[in-house]
Amino acid sequence: MEYSSGAPPVQRLIEEFSRLPGVGPKSAQRLTYHLIRMPEEQAENLASAILSVKTRITLCSKCFHITESDPCNICLDSTRDQSKICVVEQPLDVMALEKTSTYDGLYHVLHGVISPINGIGPDDLKVKPLLQRLMDSEVTEIIMATNPNLEGEATSMFIHRLIEPSGIKITRPARGLPVGGDLEYADEATLGRAIEGRQNF
């Protein structure tokens, strides 16, 4: 064992932390020793927060966003525009779009992206439920908000191919220069799209 100096419970916690994304063995060790020094009450809060996420959080059966109640609050909100569905890769994307306060339609979370090189295909995502949802509802516009990279684009193109025959309008967010970014660092694809999609001052 790499960290043989710790007692078995300490080693176990280090191992558990190491399983988390972005946490290496050194960080896992640091987090564990921080927890050991932490007041018991705080540690209990953390443990119960982790458990409640696992026991109380589920996926919305309509949009597959993470929620405490099914359907989720967004799907239940009758003031939202029921004719628009924004398709995103992850629940975090819903949160990011909600922060903008400019979108008032519904969502559909795919829970991933088509990644052929990693063996992830459309059947591993929530694509079929999306098609089913479109058949049963009066949606008139689908906004494909997958990430603007090759795999995100491939996912959007694939879903576009499936939905196109239905005649539903399919749109995607504009591509262009990031706020606070430098023009000189923009690559040709981004800059080209930004020029194509220019708007009146």
Partner: peptide
């Protein structure tokens, strides 16, 4: 990060 100096230069292919 949006605004990264790499922009879209590291796209696959």
């Amino acid at each position: 990060r949006p605004g990264s100096k790499f922009g879209g230069s590291l796209e696959i292919l």
